[in-house]
């Protein structure tokens, strides 16, 4: 078997045109999911009974079903459902089937990323330890002030590696958007490949684009971490901060 290098190079540059869509899917999903996930994590930690149950149910449902399945479900169910809502319930003449399908992609990815991030935030908030919250209360701060000034800044720092993982996971799963006819990197390359059955070349191209994107994300997070960890950077001993942090569990 021989690779069609000319096709491969051409398709590579064509696929690059899909990067903005891929990045847009990733970024907007993150921006929408993160705040929702944060309040879900908080709701669970502050032991809001009913809310906590609902959130747990939601998280296990999302985590217990394959993304592909969620896409298949939503993509075949949601348009019809929306159409029914708009036409029969609201009585509008708006054509739901004209909506950009990227909307469905956003819905699926937001649902997933929110579930993932809510767990990430929850465990991050827990690593800060209850002791610092108590201290804040004894010196007269309100719970809200303690969260904003003490707990959250530390939680965000300790969550960074997991947020990075979640972002990379999300970016990779956006490749499934082709199932909803969204023209991202994967979709563009696949369409090209279909003309002359050059699938292997196209897949290698896709592979390469994602590797570059994921490496870039890791780099960005490394830089953020370096900046955000100023308060742990110059520990007296190696791993000193980590030790101090874990101590609260003893």
């Amino acid at each position: 078997m021989e690779l069609n290098t000319k096709f491969m190079i051409e398709t590579f540059f064509d696929a690059l045109a899909g990067i903005p869509v891929t990045l847009k899917l990733t970024l907007i999903t993150l921006l929408v999911s993160a705040p929702i996930a944060f309040f879900m994590a908080l709701g669970k930690i502050e032991k809001r009974k009913i809310a906590g149950k609902l959130i747990s149910g939601y998280v296990s449902f999302i985590r217990g079903t394959p993304v592909v399945l969620q896409i298949l479900f939503l993509y075949s169910l949601l348009p019809t459902l929306l159409n029914y809502l708009v036409k029969d319930v609201l009585g509008l003449s708006f054509n739901v089937f004209q909506l950009d399908t990227i909307l469905y992609a956003y819905i699926v990815f937001v649902l997933n990323t929110t579930a993932v991030l809510s767990e990430v935030f929850r465990s991050a908030l827990l690593t800060v330890g209850h002791g610092q919250m108590e201290t804040a209360l004894t010196i007269g701060m309100t719970k809200r002030q303690a969260y904003i000034r003490i707990i959250i800044p530390q939680a965000v720092v300790s969550a960074l590696p997991n947020i990075c993982n979640a972002t990379i996971g999300l970016l990779k799963s956006t490749s499934l958007a082709f199932m909803m006819s969204v023209q991202d990197v994967t979709a563009i390359a696949k369409v090209k490949a279909a003309y002359g059955y050059n699938y292997i070349e196209a897949y290698l191209d896709i592979c390469f684009v994602y590797i570059v994107l994921c490496s870039a994300i890791q780099l960005v997070f490394k830089l953020i971490e370096r900046y955000a960890c100023a308060y742990k950077k110059s520990s007296r001993t190696k791993g000193g901060a980590l030790y101090a942090r874990n101590k609260e569990y003893i």
């Binding site: 002791g131 108590e134 201290t135 004894t138 003490i150 530390q154 308060y231 942090r245 609260e248």
Partner: peptide
């Protein structure tokens, strides 16, 4: 009117 000193210090790690 009170202040508390904890067994495990409980300092704010980010301050």
């Amino acid at each position: 009117k009170t202040a508390f000193v904890f067994q495990n210090y409980n300092l704010f790690h980010n301050k």
